[in-house]
Design a protein around this nucleic acid. Structure first.
Lengths: 212, 212
DNA sequence: CATGAACTCAAGCAGCTGCTTGAGTTCATT
DNA sequence: AATGAACTCAAGCAGCTGCTTGAGTTCATG
């Protein structure tokens, strides 16, 4: 039985099919969104038969949900890993850099990493049915950011800081999807970061009128 | 002939059909994007026959293009009208307020105005084929913003200011599409503006590291 | 009243959609 | 060698897609 798991070629092949379908689905979701994804297009790209989707996932919707869930996990892991080391003495620039780094890396790396970010961003715009629960997970990943913000901007209302955090996240998501992100992708991670961090940090800090 | 134009009920009915189709198309484009729009759904919503689309516009694609073009015109008009009065003595807050105002108003107003903004934002993510020429029009509407920026931030490279302008525009587009925008929509225009303008102004100003 | 342009309509077309089916293949286990 | 689970495959289904067609209605014009 232990030996069986080592050499069950059938199961390995099945796993490969599953992975291929999920990868193909992710790429197409990133490219065209949920409405633009087609069963045959996924299976063609994955080199699999249409029936494989039903067999392994149950339906196209289930496959897409699975691919999206996978993408969200990867995104949230990366986000938390960046924000966790921050302490209450961190500056706004450090926060902004940590906040933006997963996106910066994905833009510079392209490929699957970028597809993950694009899919996550699209889900932020057109959430699949019954995925409202995700909002909580997103908020959770931003709680750390909020702590650093309150330490740096003691005078500002918490509701406003939450709003700014969501704006910053929205801006990063926009970069993943819009043409400007594609232009950024031609640059190195360091160059992207140098341009982007001041903008995110500025959005965090805010800039209220003094005179007038 | 002059009298004819006054009372040609047939032509008026045709115009009403055209308008209804365009409005229905705009609303669905705003809601689901181009991939999610269906001929029958549009005609049902507009109370028209499927053949009316072919008759008046030639094809579904042409109808969508027409609706998108109309939305873009309305958006660019509003944007230019806000940015035009700004002079080189305007502050960053004034710029941010003017820059954000069309979106703020649309969010507060909802309905067709918001549908226009959502459609414009979606086009920014998934441009219809052959619409690359629009990038120029967008840049044009932001040239005024750039002038105010260079006056306020003389030390910053122009490429970075262009980048910040596009970031600010992207943030506003994100607000139109994402759930956070829907939450904002419950507020008055003044409340939205009070929260949003500091963020946009902060993104314009930037916030570069000094120590460390 | 006759004409013809402007417009609407139900029906139908080929092509694509997601999904199912039943027959097949592969392969560890016995 | 026999068994049966895991998996793949071509074919086909009903339903939807965009679009066309030809017959119809409405109405300003002569």
């Amino acid at each position: 039985m232990i030996q069986a798991k080592k050499t069950d070629l059938r199961r390995e092949a099945g796993q490969r099919t599953r992975d291929g379908l999920q990868t193909a689905a992710l790429e197409l979701l990133a490219q065209r969104g949920q409405e633009g994804v087609t069963l045959r297009e996924i299976t063609d790209r994955a080199g699999a038969n249409v029936a494989a989707v039903s067999y392994h996932f149950g339906s196209l919707k289930a496959l897409c949900d699975s691919a999206i869930e996978h993408a969200l996990e990867r995104y949230l892991d990366a986000q938390i890993q960046e924000l966790d080391p921050l302490g209450s003495t961190s500056t706004l620039q450090e926060l902004a850099a940590a906040f933006a780094r997963p996106m910066v890396r994905a833009l510079a790396a392209g490929g699957q990493d970028l597809a993950v970010m694009r899919t996550v961003a699209r889900v932020g715009i057109d959430p699949p049915e019954g995925w409202e629960r995700l909002n909580g997970k997103f908020d959770q990943s931003r709680r750390e950011a909020l702590r650093v913000l309150t330490a740096n901007l003691p005078g500002v209302d918490e509701q406003e800081l939450i709003f700014r955090t969501r704006c910053a996240a929205g801006l990063l998501n926009w970069l993943a999807l819009a043409p400007i992100g594609t232009e950024l992708a031609a640059m190195s991670a360091e160059q992207i970061e140098r341009q982007l961090v001041p903008v995110v940090a500025g959005a965090f800090r805010g800039d209220t009128a003094v005179g007038c």
